[in-house]
Protein backbone atom coordinates (compact mmCIF):
# COMPACT_ATOMS: atom_id res chain seq x y z
CA UNK A 1 0.00 0.00 0.00
CA UNK A 2 2.81 2.40 0.87
CA UNK A 3 4.37 2.04 -2.59
CA UNK A 4 1.04 2.92 -4.21
CA UNK A 5 0.68 5.87 -1.85
CA UNK A 6 4.18 7.12 -2.64
CA UNK A 7 3.46 6.80 -6.37
CA UNK A 8 0.19 8.68 -5.88
CA UNK A 9 1.90 11.61 -4.17
CA UNK A 10 4.65 11.62 -6.80
CA UNK A 11 2.17 11.72 -9.70
CA UNK A 12 -0.14 14.21 -8.00
CA UNK A 13 2.81 16.45 -7.10
CA UNK A 14 4.14 16.45 -10.68
CA UNK A 15 0.63 17.09 -12.04
CA UNK A 16 0.16 20.16 -9.85
CA UNK A 17 3.70 21.44 -10.43
CA UNK A 18 3.37 21.10 -14.20
CA UNK A 19 -0.07 22.74 -14.03
CA UNK A 20 1.56 25.73 -12.35
CA UNK A 21 4.34 25.72 -14.96
CA UNK A 22 1.77 25.76 -17.81
CA UNK A 23 0.65 29.24 -16.80
CA UNK A 24 4.00 30.54 -15.58
CA UNK A 25 6.45 29.28 -18.24
CA UNK A 26 7.87 32.13 -20.33
CA UNK A 27 7.97 30.16 -23.57
CA UNK A 28 4.56 29.04 -24.94
CA UNK A 29 6.07 25.83 -26.32
CA UNK A 30 7.27 24.98 -22.83
CA UNK A 31 3.74 25.65 -21.57
CA UNK A 32 2.33 23.07 -23.99
CA UNK A 33 5.02 20.56 -23.04
CA UNK A 34 4.18 21.03 -19.36
CA UNK A 35 0.51 20.56 -20.19
CA UNK A 36 1.40 17.24 -21.83
CA UNK A 37 3.31 16.26 -18.69
CA UNK A 38 0.22 17.13 -16.62
CA UNK A 39 -1.99 14.96 -18.90
CA UNK A 40 0.47 12.13 -18.65
CA UNK A 41 0.58 12.22 -14.86
CA UNK A 42 -3.20 12.42 -14.61
CA UNK A 43 -3.31 9.26 -16.72
CA UNK A 44 -1.01 7.72 -14.10
CA UNK A 45 -3.47 8.79 -11.39
CA UNK A 46 -6.32 7.17 -13.35
CA UNK A 47 -4.37 3.91 -13.45
CA UNK A 48 -3.86 4.09 -9.68
CA UNK A 49 -7.61 4.64 -9.25
CA UNK A 50 -8.27 1.49 -11.29
CA UNK A 51 -9.63 3.30 -14.36
CA UNK A 52 -7.09 1.85 -16.78
CA UNK A 53 -9.26 2.26 -19.87
CA UNK A 54 -9.81 5.97 -19.22
CA UNK A 55 -6.10 6.41 -18.58
CA UNK A 56 -5.15 4.93 -21.94
CA UNK A 57 -7.85 6.85 -23.79
CA UNK A 58 -6.68 10.06 -22.11
CA UNK A 59 -3.19 9.47 -23.48
CA UNK A 60 -4.26 8.31 -26.95
CA UNK A 61 -6.78 11.11 -27.48
CA UNK A 62 -5.45 14.10 -25.56
CA UNK A 63 -1.71 13.55 -25.55
CA UNK A 64 -1.46 11.67 -28.83
CA UNK A 65 -3.75 13.85 -30.92
CA UNK A 66 -5.08 17.04 -29.32
CA UNK A 67 -1.87 18.19 -27.67
CA UNK A 68 0.14 17.45 -30.83
CA UNK A 69 -2.07 19.90 -32.72
CA UNK A 70 -1.65 22.45 -29.91
CA UNK A 71 2.10 22.01 -30.12
CA UNK A 72 1.98 22.42 -33.90
CA UNK A 73 0.03 25.66 -33.72
CA UNK A 74 2.16 27.13 -30.94
CA UNK A 75 5.40 26.20 -32.73
CA UNK A 76 4.25 27.65 -36.05
CA UNK A 77 3.01 30.93 -34.57
CA UNK A 78 5.57 33.63 -34.04
CA UNK A 79 4.50 34.61 -30.55
CA UNK A 80 5.94 37.72 -28.93
CA UNK A 81 6.60 36.60 -25.38
CA UNK A 82 6.91 40.15 -23.99
CA UNK A 83 3.53 41.19 -25.41
CA UNK A 84 1.96 38.11 -23.86
CA UNK A 85 3.38 38.99 -20.45
CA UNK A 86 1.75 42.43 -20.50
CA UNK A 87 -1.79 41.12 -20.53
CA UNK A 88 -1.09 38.69 -17.70
CA UNK A 89 -2.06 40.95 -14.79
CA UNK A 90 -5.14 42.17 -16.65
CA UNK A 91 -6.51 38.66 -17.19
CA UNK A 92 -5.43 37.32 -13.82
CA UNK A 93 -8.66 38.29 -11.95
CA UNK A 94 -10.84 36.64 -14.63
CA UNK A 95 -8.75 33.46 -14.55
CA UNK A 96 -8.73 33.43 -10.76
CA UNK A 97 -12.52 33.84 -10.73
CA UNK A 98 -13.04 30.90 -13.11
CA UNK A 99 -10.66 28.80 -11.03
CA UNK A 100 -12.47 29.75 -7.83
CA UNK A 101 -15.89 28.86 -9.28
CA UNK A 102 -14.61 25.45 -10.41
CA UNK A 103 -13.04 24.85 -6.99
CA UNK A 104 -16.28 25.73 -5.19
CA UNK A 105 -18.22 23.44 -7.52
CA UNK A 106 -15.82 20.60 -6.80
CA UNK A 107 -16.20 21.16 -3.06
CA UNK A 108 -19.97 21.22 -3.46
CA UNK A 109 -20.02 17.95 -5.37
CA UNK A 110 -17.79 16.15 -2.90
CA UNK A 111 -19.53 17.87 0.00
CA UNK A 112 -23.01 16.65 -1.02
CA UNK A 113 -21.68 13.13 -1.42
CA UNK A 114 -20.37 13.30 2.14
CA UNK A 115 -23.64 14.71 3.44
CA UNK A 116 -25.64 12.00 1.68
CA UNK A 117 -23.41 9.60 3.63
CA UNK A 118 -22.35 7.76 0.47
CA UNK A 119 -18.62 7.22 0.10
CA UNK A 120 -17.11 8.56 -3.13
CA UNK A 121 -16.01 5.09 -4.20
CA UNK A 122 -19.69 4.07 -4.44
CA UNK A 123 -20.24 6.47 -7.33
CA UNK A 124 -17.95 4.36 -9.55
CA UNK A 125 -19.39 0.87 -9.28
CA UNK A 126 -17.27 -1.78 -10.94
CA UNK A 127 -18.85 -5.19 -10.46
CA UNK A 128 -16.49 -8.00 -9.53
CA UNK A 129 -15.04 -9.89 -12.48
CA UNK A 130 -15.87 -7.20 -15.05
CA UNK A 131 -12.99 -5.17 -16.45
CA UNK A 132 -13.69 -1.48 -16.75
CA UNK A 133 -13.49 -1.64 -20.55
CA UNK A 134 -16.41 -4.07 -20.55
CA UNK A 135 -18.26 -2.06 -17.90
CA UNK A 136 -17.96 1.14 -19.97
CA UNK A 137 -18.91 -0.58 -23.22
CA UNK A 138 -21.92 -2.25 -21.64
CA UNK A 139 -23.52 1.05 -20.61
CA UNK A 140 -22.21 3.21 -23.46
CA UNK A 141 -23.81 1.15 -26.23
CA UNK A 142 -27.06 0.32 -24.41
CA UNK A 143 -28.22 2.90 -21.89
CA UNK A 144 -26.46 5.91 -23.38
CA UNK A 145 -26.74 4.84 -27.00
CA UNK A 146 -28.52 8.00 -28.20
CA UNK A 147 -26.18 10.28 -26.29
CA UNK A 148 -23.29 8.40 -27.87
CA UNK A 149 -24.72 8.80 -31.38
CA UNK A 150 -25.43 12.46 -30.67
CA UNK A 151 -21.83 13.03 -29.64
CA UNK A 152 -20.76 11.41 -32.91
CA UNK A 153 -23.02 13.70 -34.94
CA UNK A 154 -21.74 16.78 -33.11
CA UNK A 155 -18.18 15.75 -33.92
CA UNK A 156 -19.12 15.18 -37.56
CA UNK A 157 -20.69 18.63 -37.76
CA UNK A 158 -17.56 20.11 -36.18
CA UNK A 159 -15.36 18.39 -38.78
CA UNK A 160 -17.50 19.61 -41.67
CA UNK A 161 -17.56 23.10 -40.19
CA UNK A 162 -13.79 23.21 -39.78
CA UNK A 163 -13.24 21.96 -43.33
CA UNK A 164 -15.68 24.42 -44.94
CA UNK A 165 -14.10 27.29 -42.99
CA UNK A 166 -10.54 26.48 -44.06
CA UNK A 167 -11.05 25.00 -47.54
CA UNK A 168 -10.93 27.82 -50.03
CA UNK A 169 -10.06 28.06 -53.68
CA UNK A 170 -6.58 29.51 -53.83
CA UNK A 171 -6.39 29.90 -57.57
CA UNK A 172 -4.45 27.59 -59.85
CA UNK A 173 -2.71 24.83 -57.87
CA UNK A 174 -0.72 22.05 -59.48
CA UNK A 175 -2.44 18.86 -58.41
CA UNK A 176 -1.11 15.33 -58.60
CA UNK A 177 -3.28 12.92 -60.55
CA UNK A 178 -2.15 9.55 -59.27
CA UNK A 179 -4.06 7.33 -61.71
CA UNK A 180 -2.69 9.35 -64.63
CA UNK A 181 0.83 8.96 -63.25
CA UNK A 182 0.40 5.25 -62.68
CA UNK A 183 -1.01 4.62 -66.15
CA UNK A 184 1.78 6.46 -67.92
CA UNK A 185 3.89 4.07 -69.95
CA UNK A 186 6.83 4.29 -72.32
CA UNK A 187 4.77 4.87 -75.47
CA UNK A 188 3.22 8.00 -73.94
CA UNK A 189 6.35 9.54 -72.50
CA UNK A 190 9.23 8.67 -74.86
CA UNK A 191 9.43 9.63 -78.53
CA UNK A 192 12.19 8.74 -80.95
CA UNK A 193 13.13 11.68 -83.14
CA UNK A 194 15.63 11.82 -85.95
CA UNK A 195 17.75 14.90 -85.41
CA UNK A 196 19.14 16.33 -88.62
CA UNK A 197 22.78 17.45 -88.26
CA UNK A 198 23.12 21.22 -88.03
CA UNK A 199 19.34 21.74 -87.79
CA UNK A 200 18.33 20.80 -84.27
CA UNK A 201 14.73 20.06 -83.44
Amino acid sequence: MTVALAVFYLLAGITIASGVMVISARNPVHSVLFMILAFFNSAGLFVLAGAEFLAMVLIVVYVGAVAVLFLFVVMMLDIDVVAMRQGFMKYLPVGALVGLVLLIELFLVFGTLRIADAPIAASVPTPEGVTNTEALGAVLYTEYFFAFQLAGIILLVAIIGAITLTLRDRGPIKRQNISEQVHRDRTKSVRMRRVEPGRGL
Binding site: I36, F53, V57, V60, G64, A65, M75
Partner: peptide, 24 residues
Protein backbone atom coordinates in the same frame (compact mmCIF):
# COMPACT_ATOMS: atom_id res chain seq x y z
CA UNK B 1 -2.77 -5.51 -18.00
CA UNK B 2 -6.28 -5.73 -19.40
CA UNK B 3 -5.80 -2.86 -21.83
CA UNK B 4 -2.42 -4.02 -23.16
CA UNK B 5 -3.06 -3.17 -26.79
CA UNK B 6 -4.38 0.30 -25.90
CA UNK B 7 -1.24 0.84 -23.85
CA UNK B 8 0.88 0.04 -26.90
CA UNK B 9 -1.22 2.40 -29.03
CA UNK B 10 -0.75 5.12 -26.38
CA UNK B 11 3.02 4.57 -26.27
CA UNK B 12 3.35 4.70 -30.04
CA UNK B 13 1.19 7.84 -30.21
CA UNK B 14 3.61 9.49 -27.76
CA UNK B 15 6.54 8.69 -30.05
CA UNK B 16 5.79 11.76 -32.12
CA UNK B 17 6.88 14.06 -29.26
CA UNK B 18 10.53 13.05 -29.33
CA UNK B 19 10.69 13.94 -33.02
CA UNK B 20 8.73 17.21 -32.76
CA UNK B 21 10.70 18.38 -29.74
CA UNK B 22 14.01 17.55 -31.42
CA UNK B 23 13.03 19.42 -34.58
CA UNK B 24 11.84 22.49 -32.71
Amino acid sequence: INVGILYLLAVSSLGVYGVVMAGW
